[in-house]
């Protein structure tokens, strides 16, 4: 029993990542009607924001190591530590939360540039063309990152405060030790999801966007520049997926093709949840994350070997065969 609960918990952080990317994909699809194959690349760019910030604040100077007296030894000491002492070390320790602040404007900029510079010209083109051009863009983005950071994963560490584990089972008398950062990631993703939904639900801007999703022409006839707002939504989706990637770095060391690995799964998530349905994307994200982690239990694997590798695709196939529109799909979305 404990093991099952633990696996459900383990699925939550992965599910959170899937849900965030799928949310962004659905948002872009619902507003602009564009299938964005470069969305995984945005996830990856977010992760590399963390890497860059970390690199910048740990810029180091070679300093004579006084503790070694037998020969001349040198060690790297970050400038921040030299200048600010303990405060400097603290800043370095908290590099991931700090990079959040940097990543938001960067990802917003990237998203806006992408929409204005490229995607905008593809609204009227067939979906196949949209897939192809964003696919090309994804290759370009990931190759650029590869050129700068190399092909190897770059491990990142969570702040000391969040390292280690917490025992969540204490209250209900079970033994559920769980890595703190994964818990943080889950809470973080829930927070982002909640803020995206409340942004759409409770602000005037969100109201206009929802109206535009329902009937673009009428909104335009009312004299509202919906295109501008949709661009902002694209930027927002880029931020969401970038932050998802950034916070995921301590769990999975980022490398240049991490985005593509997540993208394929997120597309499956979107299809299972139902194209165009935001709650569907979120629900399916968590559902598939949890199922994947349950399937990787040794007990399950001994009955169905290899099930953990394919469970998501199997579920997707079953859902599409039984409920072709996905769990919460609406009629008339992408039916042509």
């Amino acid at each position: 029993m404990d093991a099952i609960f633990l696996q459900i918990l383990n699925g939550l952080d992965k599910g959170g990542a899937y849900a965030l990317i799928a949310l962004g994909l659905t948002l872009i699809f619902g507003t602009l009607g564009v299938v964005n194959f470069a969305h995984g690349a945005l996830f990856m760019l977010g992760a590399f924001c963390a890497v860059t910030v970390n690199k910048v604040i740990t810029l180091s100077a070679k300093v004579r190591d006084e503790s070694v007296t037998f020969f001349e030894a040198y060690k790297d000491v970050p400038y921040l530590e030299m200048w600010l002492g303990d405060t400097g070390s603290l800043i370095i320790d908290w590099s991931i939360p700090i990079s959040l602040v940097v990543a938001i404007p960067v990802m917003l900029g990237v998203g806006l540039a992408m929409e204005r510079g490229l995607i905008r010209h593809f609204y009227k083109r067939p979906h196949a063309d949209q897939i192809l051009v964003t696919f090309g863009l994804a290759i370009v983005l990931q190759e650029i990152v590869k050129a700068f950071y190399g092909a190897n994963p770059i491990p990142q560490t969570a702040p000391d405060f969040f390292s280690g584990t917490v025992n969540l089972g204490g209250l209900i008398g079970m033994d559920l030790t769980y890595p703190t950062w994964r818990l943080v990631y889950f809470i973080f993703s829930m927070g982002i999801i909640a803020s995206v939904f409340s942004f759409l639900q409770f602000t005037t801007f969100g109201m206009v966007v929802r109206a535009g999703m329902a009937d673009r022409e009428t909104v335009q006839l009312l004299g509202i520049n919906i295109t501008k707002r949709f661009s902002v939504v694209f930027g927002l989706a880029a931020v969401v997926s970038g932050l998802a990637g950034l916070m995921y770095t301590p769990i999975l060391p980022p490398d240049y093709h991490m985005g593509m690995d997540f993208l394929v799964l997120s597309f499956v998530v979107v299809v299972v949840g139902g194209m165009g349905s935001l709650p569907g994307a979120v629900a399916a994200g968590f559902l598939l994350g949890i199922l994947q982690s349950l399937a990787s239990m040794t007990e399950v694997k001994s009955i169905f070997p290899g099930i953990d590798q394919i469970i998501i695709y199997l579920i997707a196939m079953i859902v599409l065969l039984v409920r072709p529109r996905g769990l919460m799909g609406r009629k008339g979305v992408m039916e042509d």
């Binding site: 979906h127 194209m275 599409l320």
Partner: peptide
């Protein structure tokens, strides 16, 4: 399996099945 859907769904399904074969 895949031809039950059209358009973008078809692309995603084929992608997913191919990835599944690759993982297997």
């Amino acid at each position: 399996v895949c031809l039950r859907r059209t358009g973008i769904y078809f692309s995603i399904l084929t992608l997913a099945l191919a990835q599944m074969s690759y993982n297997l």
